[in-house]
């Protein structure tokens, strides 16, 4: 039974950087570093990768004022806070999109599969959360790895009715260790967003 409705979301607005990445916004001397700037904090195990991308609006223009957050498991499939999780990996990243071309970038680890509640596993993925001016409630999605054989049996990808849209959740290798995940907010190539 619900006794208290969740507070309503409101857009992060154009000045989200002031509160979430003040150093990026030029407000220095308040916080030492911006939250989520570093995901790998030491000698973490696993393959280091870079996840990059852009967020496009319905006209194909990249957003230059969005903020993207990443949350993911480590190279053993454990989330920070779980017993045995890699102490040198936070699993959390936050990136303001580039003011010129809108690129976001996470220097991170390739995650391993994680459990699915009713048994089996979910293919390796990075949860992404996107906020910006004009987005009234944060958009939740996942970047899977296009070259991961585990995708075949992933229970979330398997639920997607329009199979041609599965590709919107795949990060593609641009080199051995750089993966690109572009997000499209609206239109024929619209990314699948989650209500989860």
């Amino acid at each position: 039974m619900d006794t208290h409705p969740e507070s309503a979301s409101q857009t992060a607005g154009p000045y989200v950087h002031i509160g979430c990445t003040p150093n990026f916004a030029g407000i220095t001397g308040v916080y030492d570093v911006d939250l989520g700037a570093t995901m790998i904090t030491g000698d973490a195990s696993g393959k280091r990768i870079t996840l990059i991308g852009q967020v496009f609006d319905g006209t194909g223009t990249p957003l230059r004022d969005a903020m993207v957050e990443a949350w993911q498991a480590d190279a053993n499939g454990l989330y920070a806070g779980q017993e045995g999780a890699d102490p040198h990996f936070t699993g959390f990243g936050r990136c303001p999109c580039d003011a010129e071309d809108g690129t976001f970038r996470f220097e991170t680890l390739r995650p391993a599969s994680v459990p699915w509640p009713s048994g089996g596993v979910q293919a390796p993925h990075i949860t992404l959360w996107i906020v910006a001016r004009g987005i009234n409630i944060g958009l939740h999605t996942r970047a899977y790895f296009a070259d991961a054989p585990e995708n075949e049996s992933d229970p979330v990808l398997g639920r997607i009715e329009h199979r041609n849209r599965v590709a919107t959740l795949l990060a593609h290798p641009e080199s051995d260790d750089i993966y690109r995940f572009n997000v499209t907010l609206q239109g024929p190539d619209e990314t699948i967003f989650f209500d989860v």
């Binding site: 223009t61 004009g134 009234n136 997607i160 849209r165 609206q186 699948i192 209500d195």
Partner: peptide
């Protein structure tokens, strides 16, 4: 919400995908 003009081209149109929360959504940074 068209009166909020920036939402016009930044709002998803397709239905979102629902599934029960998993460890990926039930965990979070501390």
């Amino acid at each position: 919400y068209p009166p909020y003009r920036t939402s016009v081209k930044r709002s998803p149109q397709a239905a979102p995908l629902s599934f029960p929360t998993t460890i990926s959504e039930e965990s979070g940074p501390v």
